[in-house]
Amino acid sequence: MTDIPTPAPGQIWQDNDKRAYGRRLRIIEIDATHAVCELTTPRGAGHQQAKPGRRTRIRLDRFRPTSTGYRYISGGQQ
């Protein structure tokens, strides 16, 4: 099993929800319970799409590879 990194600014994560297939987010900042993320890739065709650059807050416990969570793609501050 692959180790899942702790969410950190600069990382790219992908939404696992089938309704948002392909949606990717970059973590901008982290606080005690949430990450502020910026949309880098909108979700798949056929859906209403948010524009890249839109920001949202996501609970840190959702950054795990479950069907309603997120999976790590790349990045992070060195």
Results as ranks from 00 to 15, higher is better:
L39G: 04
L39D: 05
I28Q: 14
T66Q: 07
A32Y: 06
F63Q: 00
R24P: 02
V36H: 11
R62F: 09
R57Y: 12
P65L: 03
K18R: 12
D31I: 06
F63K: 08
A32N: 11
E38I: 10
T66S: 14
A32F: 13
T66Y: 07
L25D: 11
A8T: 07
P7F: 04
G44I: 09
N16P: 04
R64S: 12
P5C: 03
A45V: 13
G44Y: 10
K18P: 03
R55A: 02
P42G: 00
P5I: 03
R59K: 08
I4K: 09
W13Q: 03
E29N: 12
I27W: 09
N16V: 01
T56K: 05
P7Y: 00
A45Q: 13
D15W: 09
D17M: 08
D15E: 10
R26P: 03
V36T: 15
G22A: 06
R64H: 06
D31Q: 00
R19P: 05
G10I: 03
I4H: 14
T56W: 04
P7E: 14
A45R: 08
L39P: 01
D31N: 15
G22C: 00
L39A: 06
I4P: 03
A20K: 10
R24M: 12
G10W: 05
P42E: 01
D17I: 12
I58K: 04
Y70H: 04
I4T: 00
R59F: 08
T56Q: 08
I30K: 00
R19Q: 12
R54P: 02
R23N: 02
D17N: 15
G44N: 11
R26H: 05
L39Q: 01
T33R: 12
I30Y: 06
R43N: 11
P5W: 04
Q49S: 02
T56M: 07
R57W: 14
R71S: 09
Q49N: 01
A35N: 04
A50S: 14
I27L: 08
R54E: 05
I28W: 05
K18M: 13
F63A: 04
T6K: 11
A20N: 13
I30H: 07
I58F: 08
R54A: 08
K51L: 13
P52V: 01
T33P: 01
R19A: 13
R26V: 10
I12E: 02
A8S: 12
P9M: 12
D31E: 04
G69F: 01
R62G: 13
L25A: 02
D61E: 14
Q11K: 07
G22M: 05
E29H: 10
